[in-house]
């Protein structure tokens, strides 16, 4: 291969749940490889395992995180392309000082809006992002916002109730 003039990034800066991480690009376990997905980096390099990988092909929604204000699929995102981004994962929702759950998290507990719980972090992140943008979203908007999220146990009904409860109380944009 001839020499290319491009910028081959040597380090990636990520702000994950408010904490800045400077990660070097390389092939060691503590480094980011150009082919690593954001889901891999979060789970394996940073040890933030609340983000789950279901299908690893962008079709189940489990790996959803909020990046720069939008829910995205961390399994279909290259970490090296997230330089400078702000990322919120399920671990970033509760109040770090008091440990108090985010109202959406609390509502999911109150409604038992999960069964096996594997899809729950992704569903909560998508719900959080929706209510951040539309605090009083209606039921149809909730269902549409979650339309890419797979739940095989069928927690759907309780999830919609849990999210609507927060929307109706106007606590979603906390």
């Amino acid at each position: 291969m001839k020499k290319t003039n491009g910028k081959e990034r040597t380090a990636v800066t990520l702000v994950v749940n408010g904490v800045t991480h400077e990660l070097n690009v390389g092939d060691q376990p503590y480094q980011v490889s150009p082919c690593h997905t954001l889901a891999q980096t979060l789970r394996e390099t940073l040890g933030v395992t609340g983000t789950k990988v279901g299908c690893d092909q962008g079709a189940c929604g489990s790996c959803t995180v909020i990046m720069d204000g939008r829910p995205i699929l961390s399994c279909m995102t290259l970490t090296i392309q997230c330089h400078g981004s702000e990322i919120t994962t399920i671990e970033g929702l509760a109040d770090p000082a008091s440990g108090k759950l985010h109202p959406i998290q609390q509502s999911f507990v109150d409604h038992s809006a999960f069964q096996c719980g594997f899809c729950t972090p992704g569903i909560i992140m998508a719900s959080k992002s929706l209510l951040d943008r539309h605090p009083s979203a209606d039921k149809q908007a909730v269902k549409e916002a979650l339309s890419g999220h797979y739940c095989r146990c069928i927690s759907h009904y309780q999830v919609v109730d849990a999210v609507m409860d927060v929307a109706e109380k106007g606590e979603g944009d906390r």
Partner: peptide, 11 residues
């Protein structure tokens, strides 16, 4: 995924 080199395009 198998390894590749990665470049950010400027233009």
């Amino acid at each position: 995924m198998k390894l590749f080199k990665h470049f950010d395009a400027e233009s």
